[in-house]
Design a protein around this nucleic acid. Structure first.
Lengths: 215, 215
DNA sequence: GCAGAAATCTGCGTGCGCGCAAACTTGCGT
DNA sequence: ACGCAAGTTTGCGCGCACGCAGATTTCTGC
């Protein structure tokens, strides 16, 4: 929940260094254990023990059992989406900047954690946590949109960011739904290639709102 | 979560009748106890005991402790919003129908539970649960919008409904924020009169998207 | 270096959410 | 009227989330 130090490693150093280390250890341990045994057969005590910390400490980093597993695949996608929106050249419109940035980030991150994604699509509790990560992009996205809108009403940026995040959530829900049904029916892996198209199609209805805000 | 019987009291009757009775008893007990003592000094066991059911039964009706308290003021606003959208004459545009229906429902319901609202604005956990009720309007709103759009793409209706719900959530968050700060600073009750204006202003950026979907 | 301040880790206790299976209630067919 | 099927309630147990306060580690000023 704290992205202020991701760039310049602010703050004295040894503290934040250890903090990030244990956070990463918890992430890795959670994902590894979830893949080895089923996701249901892993308690927070196991994760904490594998990471070498107290069970109580786990909840100082993640507020739910699923967050650690989901964090491994979701990562800091939120901040990268915002950065991607801001990095688009000024020539392209707001709608294209936002939509393409989101599509890029959500398709690029699929390759590394493909096995983890398959795991997430299986268990409903994990799917819910994964879908819940979309709300995390709201704040960074708000600032990115506000930066592109210039001196406009900051309320508008916030509403648009929330709407975009909601649309992304809808796309993910539908993608997971069709994915699991495909798995059940065909028995093959996920057709991740359709995610970009689905995102574009789902975000399309918001284009008029984004265009109108630009004036 | 089950709105199929709200109109015609379908299903044999005695079962659903008792079900609604205990649900209402739980709601009332939760709100009463929360008002008497502080909201933090009421356990689910107390609510269940006051309603005359087992503590386990409570979680058959509400999946969290706050839901019962919030449900008292939130009620079945979801279904009524959808009905209000559908009831607007065909002459008015989709944007006006949606926005005015929402404004109506969110202002009309404020009067009865004014004291409860003040309670909710105080405790952060309750505010979160109250804000969370906005996602409940997504499904009914989707069908209402789809009905007005006619034979258009059902995806569009879903995205628009999700965006509208997100915007409502943003408005509620901001309203609660300014409300609590006003209370802290001035020490007076909430300026509920500004909610309609805030809703209208927050939903305004989505007008172009709603208008465009209508064609 | 060295105290004092600040942040973090940890054990403990409480309450909550929920799966499970047994008792009980209600509805329906005959 | 009666018995079976379906639905609901309840007790039980497990694991999770978190506040609290003490111990421990890290940072800062001197």
């Amino acid at each position: 929940m704290d992205y202020a130090e991701t760039v310049t490693t602010r703050r004295t150093g040894l503290r934040e260094q250890k903090k990030q280390a244990t956070r990463e250890a918890l992430r890795a341990a959670a994902l590894r254990l979830a893949l080895e045994r089923g996701p249901d057969n892993v308690r927070v005590d196991d994760i904490a023990e594998a990471a070498g910390v107290s069970p109580r400490t786990y909840n100082n980093y993640f507020s739910s059992r699923e967050q650690a597993i989901v964090a491994a695949v979701a990562g800091e996608r939120e901040a990268r989406v915002a950065a991607a929106v801001a990095d688009r050249p000024d020539g392209v419109g707001l709608a294209d900047a936002v939509i393409e940035a989101i599509v890029d980030q959500y398709t690029a991150s699929d390759a590394p954690g493909a096995d983890a994604l398959l795991l997430i699509t299986t268990r409903p509790a994990l799917r819910e946590a994964f879908v819940g990560t979309t709300t995390a992009i709201e704040h960074p996205l708000t600032e990115a949109i506000a930066g592109r809108l210039g001196d406009g009403d900051p309320h508008t940026a916030r509403v648009l960011a929330a709407s975009v995040a909601a649309a992304v959530r809808v796309a993910l829900e539908q993608w997971l739904q069709t994915t699991v049904s495909t798995c059940t029916a065909g028995g093959l892996v996920v057709p991740s290639g359709s995610l970009p198209d689905l995102l574009r199609a789902t975000l399309a209805p918001l284009r008029p709102a984004l265009d109108a805000a630009e004036q």
